[in-house]
C-alpha cells in the first residue's frame, strides 16, 4: 500500500493562514491502514488546527468528512454538493487524493496534509518500510523476491557495492543492505551462480523516467 506521514502542524497552518472555513477530507484507503489519514487522524488534526487557530485569535471552522477512497471519481462525487461552501479543502489522502479532488472541482483550492512517501508495508506495529519503487517492469524473480531497485540505495542490479558492512547499507545503519540478504538467500539455497548472470541496463521507460504513466485495461474500458 501507499505509506504517508502527516505534515507538521505548522506547515498546514501556514498553508491555510488566510482561510477561516475549511473542509477536511480523510480517506478510508491506504492512509487509514497506515494510520495517517483515516477517521481518527481527521479528528486529531481537526482539533489541533482549531486549538492552534483559537490561540492565534483567528478561529477556524472545520467540516470533517471521510471518503471511501480519494483515488476514485465515484467517491470524489460525494462532496459535489458541499465542496464550495468552504474557503479551502484539505485532503488527508496520499498525493493522489488532492489531485483527484482538484481535477473534479476546478473552482476550489485543495491542500495536502500528508507527505506521500512510498509503497510498502508494516514490518511491525508502527513501522513501515519501502518495498516497491513502481519501476513498471518487475525483476524480483532474479533476486528471489527481493527488490534491489527499491531497496538498494543505489538500485544496483549487480550488487552489493563495496559499502556493505554487517548486513547494513553504507548510507545508514538503519538501512538493511538488501544485497546482503539476496546473496545470503542465494547461498542458503546453493544458487549463488544465479548472481553471476549479467543483467543488461534497465529500460527505465516503464518507470517514471518515461513520463507520467497510464494503465489501460481494454476489457474494462467502456
Amino acid at each position: 500500500m501507499i505509506i504517508a506521514d502527516r505534515k507538521p502542524l505548522e506547515e498546514i497552518l501556514e498553508m491555510i493562514a488566510d482561510v477561516d472555513n475549511i473542509m477536511l477530507v480523510g480517506c478510508k484507503g491506504c492512509v487509514t491502514v497506515c494510520n495517517v489519514g483515516g477517521l481518527k487522524e481527521v479528528q486529531i488534526l481537526s482539533s489541533s488546527l482549531k486549538i492552534a487557530r483559537k490561540k492565534a485569535d483567528r478561529p477556524l471552522q472545520i467540516e470533517e468528512v471521510l471518503l471511501e477512497r480519494q483515488c476514485d471519481p465515484e467517491y470524489i462525487e460525494q462532496i459535489r454538493d458541499t465542496y464550495d461552501r468552504y474557503d479551502a479543502v484539505l485532503s488527508m489522502a496520499c498525493g493522489v487524493g488532492p489531485q483527484f479532488l482538484s481535477e473534479a472541482y476546478p473552482g476550489q483550492r485543495f491542500f495536502p496534509t500528508v507527505n506521500t512517501k512510498f509503497m510498502g508495508g508494516a514490518v511491525t506495529h508502527g513501522i513501515w518500510e519501502e518495498r516497491c519503487a513502481g519501476c513498471g517492469t518487475c525483476v524480483i524473480h532474479h533476486y528471489d523476491g527481493l527488490c534491489p531497485i527499491a531497496r538498494c540505495s543505489k538500485s544496483l542490479l549487480h550488487g552489493p557495492c563495496g559499502g556493505s558492512a554487517d548486513g547494513k547499507c553504507e548510507v545508514s545503519q538503519e538501512i538493511v543492505c538488501i544485497w546482503d540478504k539476496i546473496v545470503l538467500k542465494k547461498m542458503e539455497q546453493g544458487r549463488l551462480e544465479d548472481l553471476r548472470t549479467f543483467k543488461p541496463a534497465k529500460d527505465w521507460r516503464s518507470a517514471r523516467d518515461g513520463g507520467p504513466r497510464t494503465s489501460i485495461r481494454e476489457e474494462l474500458v467502456q
Binding site: 543505489k154 538500485s155 542490479l157 549487480h158 550488487g159 557495492c161 549479467f198 541496463a201 534497465k202 527505465w204
Partner: peptide, 9 residues
C-alpha cells in the same frame, strides 16, 4: 541519485 546503470553495466 542517478544510478541509471551500475558499475557492472
Amino acid at each position: 541519485n542517478v544510478y541509471d546503470i551500475d558499475s557492472m553495466q
